[in-house]
Nucleic acid binder design. Structure first.
Length: 404
RNA sequence: GGAGGGGUGGCCGAGCGGUCAAUGGCAGCAGACUGUAAAUCUGCCGGGUUUUCCCUACGUUGGUUCAAAUCCAACCCCCUCCA
């Protein structure tokens, strides 16, 4: 499908579109300036992760094409819990945790979006502003009557739970009602006419569109992004230590850069389109590289993606460290570093630096010939090390011991 | 409220008195081969201890037993059907 609006053309060309509620209408609307669209984010953790990056990039693209993006913090809905894609209800968070998560998550948006009061400046909203003070009876009468339980039961988020004999509590069942209401509220407050999100949000989005039409006569739209998997079919964004966090406090710049540097060959072009602003001709050139040369494309991807999320300095420092560490066998300053006093058992040092999860694992790795100190293989389980030293576990994981 | 089924390591899923730190699969880590890739093969994969030892763990708490993930009791939670 070809679009006349720049926004949709770009989204289509770069692979962001999974489903649209009304492609022609959205295209027409997007062709005019000032399209207001939103994406909602749960505040279940102190940081968003790579899985959210698609949605964030959608908002960024919208702003690049003259639209007005709204990042909706789920301060209210997080207290309820989205059942989509989950087998069991998750732990409900207390207010203090939600507030802390929100403060932390906000920071990352400032890197991707420009906030302000101008026509295409981004807005950050929080649905706690309207959900916290709802009056139950009033809400049921004004909005609850527009929801068909029959229909809700048929939605994937609910149906899958029921089919698999998994529990679904009433509070979770209400999640989509509240999310639908968010859409209506954002339409009222900011003239927002489109909600975007991952493909698992389709049901929640269309419910909101229906509700908007029923209670406000508004014409609303929805757009979902595909679930991004790695070329090998696995879910994208998992590493040894869990999710790839966007916040530096949760994941150091070096690890963030390394994540992109290590993507599968087959994913390089796709990821450049989705997760960087690199122009198409340059992407074409890079993804055409073959053999060992594809590594240049991966470095370009790592630099561009890291620059966006962590800043140009973080990207440059990581690249320099990578070169020093891998190409020259030395050590770059962006490697994780730990201060120690005097000599200590190598086994303890491996645990301290996080290269091994336990002393037992450290001993096993020594026996497996996986440990190096300053590039020299060590297998002695009772060896000592003293700073300064560079510890390596395998070829990729390194840490520095410094005198302290 | 009644009847039945079920809760095992990150996940799935065996085990159903000792030989169980618990089969197998997935995920993960390391080694070989490479390009900090993929695929493949090999090893590892609760914690501690210089290792035929100790601790923790099979929903929770007690009990039976020389010995329990396995038997008994109570309780908690989930699912199904009935009321």
């Amino acid at each position: 499908m070809t679009y006349k609006s720049e926004y949709l053309s770009t989204l289509e060309a770069r692979g962001y579109i999974h489903q649209l509620t009304d492609a022609d209408a959205i295209d027409t609307r997007a062709a005019k300036p000032g399209l207001v669209a939103y994406v909602g984010f749960d505040l279940t953790g102190p940081s968003l992760h790579i899985g959210h990056l698609m949605s964030i990039m959608m908002l960024r693209r919208l702003q690049q094409h003259g639209g007005k993006p709204i990042a909706l913090m789920g301060g209210g809905t997080t207290k309820v819990g989205d059942p989509s894609g989950k087998d069991t209800q998750r732990q409900l968070l207390d207010q203090a945790t939600i507030d802390a998560n929100k403060a932390s998550i906000k920071r990352v948006f400032e890197r991707f979006l420009t906030f302000g009061d101008g026509p295409s400046d981004a807005i950050m909203a929080d649905n706690a502003d309207w959900l916290d003070h709802l009056n139950y009876i009033e809400f049921l009468r004004d909005y609850g009557r527009h929801f068909s339980v029959n229909r809700m039961l048929s939605m994937d988020s609910v149906k899958l739970r029921l089919e698999r004999d998994q529990p679904l509590s009433f509070i979770e069942f209400n999640y989509m009602v509240l999310q639908s209401y968010d859409f209506v509220e954002l339409n009222r407050r900011y003239g927002c006419v489109m909600q975007m999100g991952g493909s698992d949000q389709w049901g929640n989005i269309t419910q909101g569109i229906d509700l908007g039409r029923r209670v406000a006569g508004a014409e609303l739209y929805g757009l979902t992004t595909p679930l991004i998997t790695n070329a090998d079919g696995s879910k994208m964004g998992k590493t040894a230590n869990g999710a790839v966090w966007l916040n530096r406090e949760q994941l150091p710049d070096w690890d963030y850069w390394q994540f992109w540097r290590n993507v599968d060959d087959r994913d390089v072009g796709r990821f450049l389109r989705l997760f960087t602003d690199m122009p198409e001709p340059e992407i074409r050139r890079l993804e055409a590289l073959e053999g060992a040369e594809i590594n240049d494309a991966k470095i370009a991807l790592a630099n561009a993606a890291t620059t966006l999320c962590r800043g140009a300095e973080a990207a440059a420092a990581s690249e320099a460290t990578a070169r020093a560490t891998f190409a020259e066998g030395g050590a770059g300053e962006a490697l994780p570093s730990f201060a120690v006093a005097g000599a200590l058992p190598l086994v303890d040092a491996l645990v301290l630096t996080g290269l091994a999860a336990s002393k037992g694992e450290a001993r096993r790795k020594l026996a497996e010939n996986a440990v190096k100190v300053d590039g020299e293989g060590v297998t002695d389980p009772v060896a000592l090390v003293s700073a300064p030293a560079r510890l390596s576990l395998g070829k990729k994981r390194h840490a520095l011991l410094t005198q302290g």
